[in-house]
Simulated assay, not measured.
Amino acid sequence: MTTTRARIATVEVGDAKPYTISIGPGLLDDGAALAATLRGRHVLLISDGNVGPLYADRVTRALRSAKPDLRVDGYVLPAGEASKTLAHFSQAIDALAAIGATRDACIVALGGGVVGDLAGFVAACWMRGIDCVQVPTTLLAMVDSSVGGKTAVDLPQGKNLVGAFHPPRAVIADTEALLTLPPRELRAGLAEVVKYGAIRDAAFLDWIEAHAAALLDGDDDALSEAVARSCRHKAEIVARDPYEHGERALLNFGHTFGHAIEAEQGFGGLNHGEAVAVGMVLAARLSARLGLAPAADAERLAVLLARLQLPVAIPAGLQAGALLERMRLDKKADAAGLRFVLWGGIGEARAVAGVPDEAVLTVLDT
């Protein structure tokens, strides 16, 4: 369910632990809204070296203005996927121990997907689980990683291999934060917005095509609409399948290819959204090769992603065989072999098991 009040849209996520996603301008300074999510007196605000200097003091002031006796401490990661490691997880745990965080403490994850994933995993593990409030500041985090409770860190062998399901207590997405987002990061988030149209809502994909220029320009109304519609789609799926036993896996469209690209580049090449953009094109072309979907739909998807200034081809220097080996460690693989989220065309995602290596290698070599 989605409601709107004074430019603040709310989406209810009705899984085993229901919570609310709030979307709109000015929420980083709304101390009452932020403090309403807290149960205790300890907050560890986890951010990174890019976001922390911009917003950490504002959020801390807002929290203390609403709850003066609150203790707010911080832990700052170096920015980037390379920081989503067990070493930084351990340091964040040490920060909780240093403040004597109790079972009713809360972690506030202020930043993008890296911060949200790591902070959520820390919250899942401290005293077997404390509250985490996701405060995403990137488009990608607003429409994807902050919603649904998937938390994790990376290993050198692959992305998100160590983690837990830990739903947030709330998601608070201040759309004004997108105004300071570097253009590359905005485009990366648009890849995940496109994904929702690609896998389940052809009319939404039509809307994205019609508003591509406004989205690229950072138009507030267009971005707010994109965030709300994307969150509504994810909330509906998460409510039905909170632990990814079925339908939720469809949200990984493009991710098997994308994660392999990220890992093979040592998490220092394409960012997540860019890798997913390439991965979606590859998944769509694999679907066409297997006779599941029209090739024209794959090309329409590639054209839209290119219009949004996202990459649509595998970066130079990556070998098909090496990418295939990375995919064997993907969480969707099982004893029977590789499983992919493919599609039957725009708006019709499906999970497909037993995809032949030869078909995958052919698409990777194209």
Rank of each mutant, 00 (worst) to 15 (best):
G189Q: 05
I199F: 06
P78I: 05
G49N: 11
F257Q: 02
G80A: 07
E325D: 13
S146Q: 03
D154R: 04
L324P: 11
R58W: 01
D144W: 05
R128H: 11
G189L: 10
A9M: 02
G279Q: 00
I21E: 03
P25I: 08
S146H: 10
G14W: 07
G344W: 04
V312W: 06
A213Q: 13
T3Q: 13
L282Y: 09
P315Y: 11
I107V: 15
K331Y: 00
T10V: 08
A105Q: 06
G266H: 12
R307C: 08
A349E: 03
V108F: 12
A239I: 05
I237K: 09
A152P: 14
R58L: 14
D73I: 10
G269F: 07
K332G: 09
A202Y: 00
I21C: 08
A239C: 09
G31F: 12
T138M: 11
A119R: 15
G317D: 12
A249L: 08
C132K: 02
A284Q: 05
D94G: 12
K67M: 05
A97C: 13
E348M: 12
H233W: 03
P294I: 04
L324D: 03
D57P: 00
A173T: 02
T4Q: 11
V143K: 10
L292H: 14
E225C: 10
L338D: 03
L181R: 13
P182L: 07
R289V: 08
K67A: 15
E209R: 15
P242N: 07
E12R: 13
Y75E: 07
R248Q: 08
D73K: 15
M327L: 08
P78T: 14
A228V: 15
R328F: 04
V11H: 04
D206C: 09
E209A: 15
L63Q: 02
H259I: 10
D15K: 00
A293M: 01
D357Q: 09
V13Y: 09
G258E: 12
I208G: 09
V135C: 08
A351Y: 01
L290H: 11
G148I: 06
A260N: 10
R7S: 14
D365W: 02
L155Q: 15
W343M: 01
A228L: 13
L215M: 15
V278L: 11
S22W: 14
